[in-house]
Design a protein around this nucleic acid. Structure first.
Lengths: 111, 111
DNA sequence: ATGTTATGTAACCATATGGTTACCTGACTT
DNA sequence: AAGTCAGGTAACCATATGGTTACATAACAT
C-alpha cells in the first residue's frame, strides 16, 4: 500500500459525509458546530473530515473569536473536472450511438 | 463505520490505480492480462480493482475464449459530473471575482 | 481568577482497503 | 486425456479510514 499522501481531491470527495459538508458550505461559510449539528456523527469526527478537506484545499479556515469559520473553495475540484473531460467525448458518442440505434429501430418499425 | 456498500462511483474513482485502468480502457477494450501488464502490481490486485469497477458499472466484461475482455462504460461518471455541476457556478463566480480584482488592480496601476 | 465555550487532538477500536501468494476452474492445445 | 493459459478467488497481512471518548487549549464571560 504505502500511500499516506494527503491533498488528494479525489480521495477527499470520495466520502459521502465530506461531500455533504462541502454541499452545506455551498450555502455559505459556517463555524464547526454549525456544520457538525447537521450530521449524525460526533464533532470530533467532523473535525477530522475538515482536516482532510483543508489538506485538499477544498475549504479554508478563518478564526472569529473562539470559533473557526470554514468556507468552501471549489477550485481544487477543477482537477476532477479536468479528468472527467476526457470522458465527456466518449459519453457523447455513447449517446449518439444510442440515438442512431433508436432511429434505425424506428425506421424498421415504420416500413 | 458500517458501509460495505458497493456500486459507489466516487469510491471507485478515488483510487489512482483504478482511474489509470479506466484511462487505459479509453483506448479500447482489453483482456485482463493486457491491462495488468501496464501496472506494477500483481494480476490478482488488478482483478480486485476490476471487480470494484464492475460493481460500479464503470466497466463491462465480455468473454472471448479463455479471456475476459473489459470495456469502459463512462455513463456512471455522469453522477460525478452532476455533482460537480453545482460547483461550476461557484467557481465561475470565483474566477469573475478574480478578474474584477485584477482589473481594478490594473486600473489602479494605470492612473 | 474562574468558569465556560468552541474546537482541535490523542488514544483507541472495528472495519475497509490494497496488496501478496497459493489455489481452482474453464477453455484452448497437443 | 494431459497439459497449458487466462483469470477469478481465498487466505492472509499491513496500513488506512471513520468513528468514539477523554483531554488540552485559546478566547470570551463573570
Amino acid at each position: 500500500m504505502l500511500e499516506p499522501q494527503s491533498a488528494d481531491v479525489f480521495r477527499a470527495v470520495a466520502d459521502p459525509t465530506r461531500r455533504a459538508i462541502l454541499d452545506a458550505l455551498r450555502r455559505g461559510e459556517q463555524p464547526v458546530n454549525g456544520i457538525a449539528s447537521a450530521f449524525p456523527v460526533s464533532r470530533p469526527a467532523i473535525s477530522k473530515h475538515l482536516r482532510l478537506l483543508r489538506e485538499a484545499k477544498l475549504v479554508v479556515e478563518r478564526r472569529r473569536g473562539r470559533q473557526r469559520v470554514y468556507a468552501l473553495d471549489p477550485r481544487p475540484l477543477d482537477e476532477v473536472n479536468a479528468w472527467l473531460n476526457d470522458y465527456r467525448v466518449m459519453w457523447r458518442q455513447a449517446l449518439a450511438r444510442l440515438k442512431t440505434h433508436v432511429e434505425s429501430q424506428h425506421r424498421r418499425t415504420q416500413r
